[in-house]
Design a protein around this nucleic acid. Sequence first.
DNA 1: CGCGCATTTGAATCCCGTCAATATATGTGG
DNA 2: CCACATATATTGACGGGATTCAAATGCGCG
Lengths: 242, 242
Amino acid sequence: MISSKFLKGRGRERLSPEAQSLLEGSIGDVQVVPGAKTLVRRGEPIRSSMLIVEGFICRSADDHQGQRQMVSLHVPGDFVDLDGFKLRRLDHDVITVGPAKVAIYEHDAIAKLIRRSSHLTASFWISGLLDAAIHRAWIFRLGRLEADARIAHFFCELHARLEAVGLAQNASFEFPLTQPDLGQALGLTGVHTNRVLRSLRERGLLTLKNRRVDIGDWKSLARLGNFEPGYLYSSGSKAGNH
Amino acid sequence: MISSKFLKGRGRERLSPEAQSLLEGSIGDVQVVPGAKTLVRRGEPIRSSMLIVEGFICRSADDHQGQRQMVSLHVPGDFVDLDGFKLRRLDHDVITVGPAKVAIYEHDAIAKLIRRSSHLTASFWISGLLDAAIHRAWIFRLGRLEADARIAHFFCELHARLEAVGLAQNASFEFPLTQPDLGQALGLTGVHTNRVLRSLRERGLLTLKNRRVDIGDWKSLARLGNFEPGYLYSSGSKAGNH
DNA sequence: CGCGCATTTGAATCCCGTCAATATATGTGG
DNA sequence: CCACATATATTGACGGGATTCAAATGCGCG
């Protein structure tokens, strides 16, 4: 099923079979889009939202000189711009990283779903709350961690989220971002990102090569990155693991 | 009315009189709490949420050495931990800055409100989405801006939000954070925060003194901070003002 | 009045950015 | 299959913004 990954990467919530089939039945269209394509521009009115089926899509804002800051990165199973359903426009751009496949949901269709299923309404609401929790972890990363720890934390999170949707096998997963892209996510320049990646590689913690990440030492990586997965609210993670 | 500021600082949404009175009638308790008090600890199960009536409350996470990163700052009219209603626990601590007055909403009462009013359900949902939008601006600030621009952006946002709830008069407002507190919000040390504040003062942009902010040159401050208020979704702000 | 807290300032250090150059893919057309 | 163009990765040298450590000054409050 096209929509079967929804919320899988997000918390312990699971859809009931009825909700799942309602969701599946409301897909307006499935589109394949090339990489590095801006799907939605900041501020423009939108009338539909996208569920990622395959590929990575990021949201990013830019400063006055056009320098970008990535504010979130989405993977299959994520609703990218569901907030647009309520807010009517976005405060950022939506851009594909590599090629991606998305399921389009017209806002009219979402409105119908909400009227028919309070379970789906709650799921959509929760999806937004988990986005916010991930944003907060992103803030923590940028505000408190140095470059090596930022990278460590970032990949710990991404690994956890990809594993939840079956896209990570034994500490290895596809990662379509270039090093400058990664820098935009972490508040670093591409050059410095490269240097720190080398350091992590030499320390045996992590290897990034040919669009693929291999985690060499998960435990050290999590310690370095101050990573505590509680904020992902997944079924496995304990509450308040200090 | 105690709850009358809800959502005023957040976007163009307004509550209907019926929704407003439902909300007012569901207040479980009103409490006055001292400053610098931890109201909720990360991970602990919660059964109620708080609407701020007076004062500032922040949410913050800490690293392995106990160093704090503030991830959001809330003002009167904000529901601080409404996500706890859905998620049952929080991924961060909730701490008062100065003394504050809060209206407590038991989760049972919120559940009742949601069953009785789809309008309030939508408002609660939107409240979380606007939190997320503010988080994204926070990420942008930390990732792309240097210290002086971070401070500028931060105070531009805060001024806009306080003005929306009637707590800012002609570019001046109460600000109960110390300089180290401000540093925790901006990913800076207290020492450097102090130096940059001096620079902003000397440039005539902003003065912080005796727990009060005076904005000297709003336009320059907004330009320096790359501030574009679209993400606050307030009725006044135009969409996509690049 | 004096204690505690916040603010302010100095000096040395370090992490990261900038500028520049080179190397290594990756892909394309002749 | 090679020549060429483009994108990505890598490395060096230098400068600058922020941290760290330390000390001094101001200020509110009991």
